[in-house]
Design a protein around this nucleic acid. Structure first.
Length: 157
DNA sequence: GCCAACGTTGGC
DNA sequence: GCCAACGTTGGC
């Protein structure tokens, strides 16, 4: 059964326009260094799962588009690169610690900002709206996904 | 720049 | 295994 996720990225590093410019509009979701987020990718994500592509740490935080999981998890290339800020000296190709999936943009949408998300009681339980939330990948309820896609994206302007 | 939240580290 | 200190995230 398909699942739904919200995945955060900093548009100053890799934003939705950067991914649209890539071959197949697909990016490897490198750089996750949190075990809970890693485990979501490793243990639960399946090709075709829905993704809310979220911009964070930027002037306009919010959902910037719809995407989908385009691969199962495989080792994150940056963990082996000594020059990368994401290098993990304790990780080896034989026993990689960090993985990522590929994410493909389905469509860029208008920016659905945090304030707008907060305005709807139907979305009040979303992890991304909770105070102090830091987890970069969070599951999204089917009802929340449907509300956002049907009411906030397709249903408006 | 502030600070809440929380994951990670390391001494014991 | 505990837990204080430290580091990071991310909205404001």
């Amino acid at each position: 059964m398909a699942r739904y996720w919200l995945m955060k990225t900093e548009p100053g590093v890799v934003g939705i326009d950067d991914v649209l410019a890539m071959p197949k509009k697909t990016v490897d979701w490198w750089g996750v260094r949190n075990y809970q987020a890693r485990n979501f990718m490793r243990d639960q994500m399946q090709v075709g799962d829905g993704v809310l592509f979220y911009h964070s740490s930027c002037p306009e935080p919010g959902i910037a588009g719809l995407a989908e999981v385009a691969s199962t998890a495989y080792p994150d290339r940056t963990q082996f690169d000594p020059k990368s800020a994401y290098h993990d000296p304790k990780s080896t190709p034989e026993q990689p610690r960090w993985v990522n999936v590929d994410v493909r943009i389905v469509k860029k949408t208008r920016l659905v900002g945090l304030d707008e998300l907060r305005a709807h009681p139907e979305l009040a339980n979303m992890r991304v709206l909770q105070r102090g939330n830091r987890l970069s990948i969070t599951p999204v309820d089917p009802a929340e996904w449907n509300f956002i896609v049907e009411r906030l994206i397709k249903g408006r302007k």
